[in-house]
């Protein structure tokens, strides 16, 4: 039986569609059906009546949301926490990669890398327990603080210290892992540049500033553009596992707020309305960061 070229193409086309089919089923069901569910943000949604039986109320929940003092607080907290994480996290990852690159003892370097990459792969459930043990009133950190004569601090139960705690523990978890990409960038810098600078009498600091950092600039720009995407997510897992009613004032973020009010409090429509606004701004941020990445470097996210 001779297959004509046309038959072959037809066979290929059908095969391609068949290959897409299972994945598309899950995509439609778990990504697109919930998008239709957003209708509930414009209703007084009652689960027993369903999406088609609930009353439409227009923008009621959105108007309520804008008037709520909570929402300003929640957005402010989200932005402070996420921007703090991005700035301090980027700085730490870059600084660590530069320092690590100076280490010549192979065994020492490998050991340190193994240890600092580890927290990235641990769940916040586990790390929250670690943070609680370290920072509780009688924990090692407070024992140290007391030993140098400063009064103990209740890091987890104080609105002044909670945001710094979230930012620094997240930086602690991720700096090692995030440094990998910067370390890879450093190794692509021509060592001849360093030698030339050294012969010209440039100090180590000067070489870092004028050779290493400019060499890393493309990747720093790319990472900075990509980090824009995360500005609305202050990290649900981390905040949820560390916060408590005492620190809602400074610790409550958009994601935890939607979870608590919308899901636990069963205000499905209101929660969806807040979620919709968050998703929309998130989409704009993602598009912007993709555009920035493409303009500033020649890479893109998708």
């Amino acid at each position: 039986m001779l297959k004509t070229k046309k038959d072959l193409t037809r066979y290929s086309q059908i095969s391609y569609h068949l290959m897409m089919l299972p994945g598309m089923f899950f995509l439609i069901l778990f990504s697109y059906v919930p998008m239709v569910g957003i209708i509930m943000a414009f209703q007084d949604f009652v689960p027993s009546k369903g999406l088609w039986g609930s009353n439409f109320v227009g923008l009621k929940h959105f108007i309520y949301m804008v008037q709520l003092p909570d929402i300003v607080k929640v957005i402010r907290n989200t932005l402070i926490i996420s921007i703090g994480k991005i700035l301090l996290g980027t700085f730490m990852a870059i600084a660590f990669s530069i320092l690590l690159n100076e280490i010549r003892l192979k065994f020492f370097k490998k050991t340190v890398q193994t240890i600092v990459y580890l927290p990235h792969f641990l769940s916040w459930v586990v790390l929250a327990a670690v943070v609680m043990n370290m920072f509780n009133l009688d924990g090692p950190i407070n024992q140290f603080i007391a030993s140098i004569g400063i009064p103990k601090i209740n890091f987890l139960g104080n609105n002044k210290t909670f945001q710094p705690l979230l930012i620094s523990t997240d930086v602690w978890k991720e700096f090692g892992y995030n440094s990998i990409v910067y370390l890879a960038a450093i190794t692509t810098i021509d060592p001849g540049l360093h030698e030339a600078a050294a012969i010209d009498g440039a100090s180590w600091w000067k070489r870092v500033w004028h050779v290493t950092l400019p060499g890393m600039l493309p990747i720093i720009t790319l990472m900075a553009a990509m980090s824009l995407t995360g500005i609305l997510s202050a990290g649900f897992d981390q905040v949820y596992n560390l916060y408590s009613p005492i620190v809602y004032e400074t610790g409550d973020t958009l994601d935890t707020y939607v979870y608590r009010i919308g899901l636990v409090g069963r205000q499905y429509s209101f929660g969806s309305a807040v979620g919709l606004c968050r998703s929309l701004v998130g989409t704009i941020l993602l598009l912007t960061s993709n555009w920035l990445a493409k303009e500033l470097t020649d890479r893109k996210i998708f």
């Binding site: 059906v33 919930p34 998008m35 957003i38 939607v258 998703s279």
Partner: peptide, 22 residues
């Protein structure tokens, strides 16, 4: 068409509550 469906789902999501209801 397939590609755009995938990318749009990366860009935008129904959110926590509609997913829970589903």
């Amino acid at each position: 068409i397939y590609m755009n469906l995938l990318i749009f789902a990366m860009l935008f999501s129904g959110g926590m509550i509609p997913s829970y209801i589903l």
